[in-house]
Design a protein around this nucleic acid. Structure first.
Length: 582
RNA sequence: GCCUUUGUAGCUCAGCCGGAUAGAGCAAGCGCCUCCUAAGCGCUAGGUCGGAAGUUCGAAUCUUCUCAAGGGCGCCA
């Protein structure tokens, strides 16, 4: 169910009948003013420009050919060639009833038609560095990626999650050397690694200052990478504990990543030499200053100097470039991906551009496989400079989440003094975590953003609690309505009802935009607007009050039910829970 | 130096593959709880869309230049 597509089809047909060339974009969009109808088709003006004809006359012809019987009750021609479409309330009502009875609330499942095939999509997201604890900077990749993943699944695609964890860098030599000493002095690994941040700091201090430690650390990396059993055991221990730290965060965040989605850097280790061999054999990589590099002419600067991409260090070591090339091959080959999506911060944009070019040249990434690097902005402090705490550190993600839950708890207690502890804890978690996630997800992916406790933990205005509150209000009505029956026969009468009808029928359109652009903020905006329209409806259109006819009451209850379903489903895609009471 | 991202209301941000009078939230001001949860609703105020030129019937959106900030650019990831 996609109004835009339905109208586009109709207008396209009319354009063709009016003599316009095939494939002319009808340019359907939402009208930005009520007097311009619900939707407008702006494509005629662009077409007229190309054909060098009068847009107004052309639009008249198109309108003459346009058949929207039963769908629209008014089609107007305005301005230089706008076609304004006023949808019929009866049509909206019948569409709503269809959607209300649909398991996927009107979102077409992929695979229903040849033009809308089910795809295998590999999504690489979160990817924390296991040497350290997750901090607020890891929030974005994790929750944006997860939202896109769930949107893809809801639409019916096959999604393969890939948590490309940083488990194989040089710093692991230092960490296992330090861990080895701790264990030698009878400390238990779990205790030693309870605070990863401290552990890392201790190891770093020893690496920088302690005689001989740095050499041991370097030796351990070599031993580890050449398969030394003792080092591998220590490494495994470290990784296991560090992963469980991440899992705790995923659990708190309501993120769908599990252990089976982990495909860390180390997993590609055995393939790296093959990658280099192939690049060399195909003369894609060459030796330069002792290292193996690819000169990328496609990315040359103005002076014709190619961009340089190092795939193997002069000492023979591999880099993340090598790993990412190997990952390309694994994902398109073994996982049979139609599309690969990678969420990392914007600093890696150049790197992934290079990876794609080289991988395509080397045949690791067939032409038909889509490769989308989705960058997101940096987190800034209040001063607009890269974010640091007063002490120059980072804020742990766990700390932020706990703070959010605590604050939510305080507010809920204030509003519901008699609430029991179990319910309080449950609601606090849902509200607090939801607020943090929504604050981040509702922002445009690409721009940098200012980290601010206040906006991050706000429960007023365009926030998750607002949406959750809308949902709770609906549930409260159902509780009050008790056994009240409602059919799925929804009437669209009041302007608030019409606005809601239009919004509810736009879900598929929004989901598709989220999927194609990897921008969950569009879904956030949509859900906020839906909730906001509901709040207005709630004020203007009574349901259970005196004097409301059974017919109207049942219709409104059905509308409420559909809104609740949509809110719940939409929030579920964002990984935000709803509750009946708050 | 080269490449790249960003600049919209006091603050945080939408809108950006051209469309009609640039939208929210917060903060400010004014109203609304005998009435389905006031974490709410209604209203007011707030803008040379960083600046300049260009393309166009039409520009926040496209192009060029420019200013400011962030990021990246041969052996970290």
């Amino acid at each position: 169910m996609n109004i835009k597509q339905i109208l586009a089809k109709k207008v396209s047909a009319a354009m063709l009948a009016a003599g316009l060339p095939e494939g002319t974009n009808p340019a359907i969009s939402l009208s930005n003013r009520p007097q311009f109808g619900d939707y407008q088709a702006n494509g005629v003006m662009g077409a007229a420009k190309k054909l060098k004809t009068n847009p107004r006359e052309l639009a008249t012809k198109v309108v003459e050919q346009l058949n929207l019987d039963g769908i629209a009750d008014k089609i107007e021609l305005a301005g230089p060639g706008f076609i304004n479409i006023h949808l019929a309330k009866t049509w909206l009502a019948s569409q709503l009833s269809n959607v209300a009875n649909d398991e996927y609330i009107g979102v077409t499942q992929r695979g229903k038609s040849e033009a809308d095939k089910k795809q295998t999509v590999v999504v690489d997201y979160s990817a924390p560095n296991l040497a350290k604890e997750m901090h607020v900077g890891h929030l974005r990749s994790t929750i944006i990626g997860d939202a896109v993943v769930r949107a893809l699944e809801f639409r019916g695609d096959k999604v393969i999650r890939q948590n490309h964890m940083g488990d194989w860098g040089t710093q692991f030599g230092m960490l296992i050397a330090h861990l080895s000493d701790k264990l030698a002095s009878d400390e238990v690994a779990e205790t030693a690694l309870a605070d990863l941040e401290n552990f890392y700091r201790e190891a770093k201090v020893r690496f920088d200052e302690e005689e001989g430690f740095a050499d041991r650390a370097r030796a351990d990396v070599v031993k580890l990478q050449s398969g030394d059993e003792q080092c591998a055991k220590l490494w495994q221990k470290f990784i296991d504990i560090s992963i469980s730290h991440s899992e705790e965060i995923y659990d708190k965040l309501n993120v769908s990543l599990t252990r089976k989605d982990i495909m860390g850097e180390s997993a590609y280790n055995d393939d790296l030499s093959t990658v280099i061999d192939e690049l060399m054999a195909n003369k894609i990589a060459v030796e330069d200053q002792g290292a193996k590099v690819v000169f990328i002419d496609e990315m040359a600067n103005k002076d014709g100097e190619p961009s340089v991409f190092i795939v193997q260090k002069s000492g023979g070591g591999y880099l993340y470039a090598t790993t990412d090339l190997s990952a390309c091959r694994y994902r398109s080959g073994k996982l049979q991906a139609d599309r690969i999506i990678i969420f990392t911060d914007a600093r890696q944009a150049l790197h992934f551009k290079q990876v794609e070019i080289v991988a395509r040249k080397a045949g690791f990434l067939p032409e038909q496989v889509v490769y989308d690097h989705c960058p997101f902005g940096m987190m800034m402090g209040d001063d607009g400079k890269p974010f640091k705490t007063r002490t120059g550190g980072t804020i742990k993600l766990a700390e932020l989440l706990d703070e959010a839950v605590t604050r939510a708890s305080g507010l809920i207690k204030e509003k519901n003094p008699d609430i029991d502890e179990v319910t309080l804890a449950d609601i606090s978690k849902k509200v607090g975590i939801g607020a943090v996630k929504f604050a981040d997800l509702s922002k445009n992916r690409t721009s940098d953003y200012i980290f601010n406790w206040k906006t991050m933990l706000s429960f007023e205005g365009a926030t998750a609690p607002y949406l959750q509150y809308a949902y709770s209000r609906i549930q409260s009505i159902f509780t009050k309505a008790e056994a009240a029956t409602f059919s799925d026969n929804i009437q669209v009468i009041e302007p608030q009802e019409k606005a809601l009808a239009l919004k509810l029928l736009q879900l598929e359109d929004v989901i598709d935009a989220v999927i194609s652009e990897c921008t969950p903020n569009l879904l956030c905006n949509y859900l906020y607007e839906l909730a906001s329209l509901y709040m207005s409806f709630y004020e203007a259109c009574p349901i259970l009050k005196e004097g409301i006819s059974a017919e109207v009451k049942e219709s409104r209850l059905a509308l409420c039910n559909l809104i609740a379903k949509t809110l719940q489903q939409g929030l579920d895609i964002l990984g935000i829970d709803v509750m009946d009471r708050m």
